[in-house]
Design a protein around this nucleic acid. Structure first.
Lengths: 143, 143
DNA sequence: CTGCTTGCAAATCTTTTGCATTGAA
DNA sequence: TTCAATGCAAAAGATTTGCAAGCAG
């Protein structure tokens, strides 16, 4: 199913309407490879949507599982959820700030599952964030 | 080495002095099992330290590797770094908010290492955050 | 002593709330 | 048409900055 169609279906099924503002935010998220900060997202609307609405829309997307916040350093960024992007994790370069999406291995998922059971948790989600220096930056300067 | 001693040594070695304010924040972090939000930390000082100083001290602790921010849901919390606590990860209950520290397996560390190499990153740190429902909450209501 | 630290005041930035108006179905 | 969604104004909350006074070494 085309992303936009699935997106509209999710809204409709949950009793929300598809509006110009909601579609724009969705397209902005779909259009960028990298997660976006709230600030970037608001900038990207170029005043077409009020900042308050951006907050409200992102909040809704999180509730519906359309988007998720991920934590990069001290800040958070927004990206589409696993429904629209493959489940993955992030590796951030401490020097240039580049964020690489890392597909995870089945073995990793199994391990997460085991950790949950060992603590008697029924796990719903998880995030793995890694930081280090990418090859480009490493060849430029000694860390 | 006793925690306080190591703490003072880290400050001294980096050219910072040990002050009443810095010791208090350190003790507060050392005294609680769970990570603390900035808000909780400020409350815990009971006005003995200005909120601005708390921010500045926490910032310094992060720079020196004494403490680290961890992301719990949308917010972040502060806890002592691996220098003072064993390296671990967090499992948060989506219902009651309880945070469980999870010791990780050597296998996990190996996997992280491999992921780094595969992406030509030299990894320096990583965090794994898991969310789900704990056994207490699960037995109270159906999720 | 002397410069690093802190407190205080205030600026700035981020996020939330209330309410009147607009627009999707 | 009708109620949900948006914009606008403003409040509330979080974080940062500048500067004078205080304290650790």
């Amino acid at each position: 199913m085309k992303e936009q169609t699935l997106f509209k279906k999710i809204l409709r099924d949950s009793g929300y309407s598809t509006t110009k503002a909601r579609s724009l935010i969705f397209d902005l998220l779909l259009g960028s490879d990298d997660p976006r900060t709230m600030h970037q997202l608001i900038e990207a609307t170029e005043g077409r949507i009020d900042r308050v609405s951006v907050y409200r829309i992102v909040e809704l997307y999180e509730k519906l599982g359309v988007a998720q916040r991920i934590n990069i350093g001290w800040k958070y960024k927004i990206e589409l959820s696993d429904v629209f992007l493959d489940h993955h994790h992030h590796m951030t370069c401490l020097d240039c700030g580049r964020v690489v999406a890392v597909k995870d291995e089945p073995m990793f998922e199994e391990m997460i599952e085991r950790l949950g059971q060992a603590n008697r948790f029924v796990l719903k989600s998880h995030q793995l964030e890694m930081q280090g220096y990418c090859d480009r930056c490493r060849s430029n300067a000694a860390q």
